[in-house]
Amino acid sequence: MAFALTPEREKEVDELLTHYPNTRAALIPVLWICQRQHGWISPEVIAWVAARLSLSTAIVKGVVTFYTMFFQEPVGEHVIWVCRTLSCDLRGAKAIQEHLEEKLGCHAGHTSKDGKFTILKAECLAACGQAPMVQIDDAYYENLTLEKLDAIIEGYRSGEPPAPADYQLAATTRTMPTPPAPEPEPEPEATLEGEA
């Protein structure tokens, strides 16, 4: 089936093209627009983008295959990226992944039977201070517990996803720590001894 962008999205493409000195530079943003409409980058999408930007399909495909966020096959209605890099793993990311797999009945890399969720493993998503975390579609959910995760999944199932992480980060990002707490400074000696 041939692919085409909606007229509103076509306008977005026209606008995008004004940002760059050549058309090729708009390739990644245009692929994004297509994926937002179509859900994944199908061969038809590749053909359409190639024609629209006067590029060969090989060039478009080469770019699509380089970037992990472009889906080369259909995915579930929602994509859950579980961060499994070090900072998250130190704070329970593995338990988050296993809980999701059990709850949704599919392993990472797969889509749940009802087609609602795809679980994917992600590399560090730049929210390490709020670990563990997942990204669902465009939204970040941070400082997760299994309980919070359950509520989030239920929210997506019922069509009312909870608000994502507070992007202003007020809760986890402070200009300065609370003034020197009266709590005793950890004894450096003790630290070293425990280590020896």
Binding site: L86, S87, L90, R91, C128, G129, Q130, A131, L169, T172, T173, R174, P177
Partner: peptide, 9 residues
């Protein structure tokens, strides 16, 4: 980040 009480920026 990691094993501290108040991770953050």
């Amino acid at each position: 980040s990691g094993h501290v009480k108040k991770p953050g920026v």
